[in-house]
């Protein structure tokens, strides 16, 4: 049974979600403020965290940044609908995906399942294929999910690793956003969904620029992204 931690200060809402998720065969714990939530998230007891961005004592991004220092625990964040800035900052701070609030519990469960399914697939693929991808200065080791860039350790969130892996597997070719979304987020792209672009811009920042000032990852407008080969 997968263990989920909800960090949200709305007592009534979280108890409703708990009720719903338990019936969907999840184990659910609730933290009502950022401090106790962060402590619980770092306890390694959980498979996934649902994090509200508006907490009484800490902003969600602060918790995310602190969590990401030591943990790759998948984070699904609750954002306000229509608050794009919130969403982008959240994804940039290392959230794996988001759900706009208010949302139906069914939608929430679908997002949770997508993230967990993807993590499981990674575990399976890591144990069966001892694959190492080597594209120019980039080395991606799928078994231990480590990446090096010009022989330096590259710190990637799990979603970013997946995205880079998907690009590296087809280096030199355009990979469309829908495939990227399915590979990295475990779900199809929806309308107005900017998550892939936000994650991609975060990866670009970590990789830096080529000597000629161009990025190592190129955008092909209307199609997708492409990792420069060699």
């Amino acid at each position: 049974m997968e263990k989920i931690l909800i960090i949200d200060d709305d007592v009534e809402l979280t108890s409703l979600f708990q009720d719903y998720l338990v019936k969907e065969h999840f184990f659910v714990d609730i933290a009502y403020d950022g401090t106790s939530g962060l402590k619980a998230a770092l306890s390694n007891k959980y498979d996934l965290v649902i994090l509200d961005m508006m907490l009484p004592d800490m902003v969600g991004t602060e918790i995310l940044v602190k969590l990401r220092l030591n943990s790759t625990l998948p984070v699904l964040m609750f954002t306000a609908k229509g608050d794009d800035l919130d969403r982008i900052i959240g994804l940039e701070s290392g959230a794996d995906d988001y759900v706009a609030k208010p949302c139906t519990p069914r939608e929430l469960v679908a997002r949770i399942r997508a993230i967990l399914r993807r993590i499981n697939q990674q575990a399976v693929s890591a144990s069966t294929t001892q694959q190492t991808l080597n594209i120019g200065p980039l080395v991606l080791s799928s078994s231990n999910r480590k990446a090096t860039w010009f022989e330096q350790d590259l710190k990637l969130t799990s979603t970013e690793f997946n995205l880079l892996e998907a690009l590296a597997q087809q280096a030199g070719q355009v990979v469309n956003k829908n495939d990227l979304s399915e590979h990295a987020l475990g779900r199809k792209l929806v309308r107005y969904d900017r998550s892939i672009d936000v994650h991609m811009s975060s990866i670009r920042q970590k990789l830096g620029q080529q000597k000629d000032g161009h990025s190592y990852i190129q955008t092909v407008r209307g199609k997708g992204y492409q990792l420069i080969k060699g």
Binding site: D10, E12, L16, F17, M54, P102, C103, T104, R106
Partner: peptide
């Protein structure tokens, strides 16, 4: 809009539970 969001989120969750 924030204030309206909380009761709406609870209503949606409650409807989900009624369906489940």
């Amino acid at each position: 809009s924030h204030e309206l969001r909380s009761p709406l989120a609870r209503m949606q969750a409650a409807i989900g539970i009624a369906q489940q």
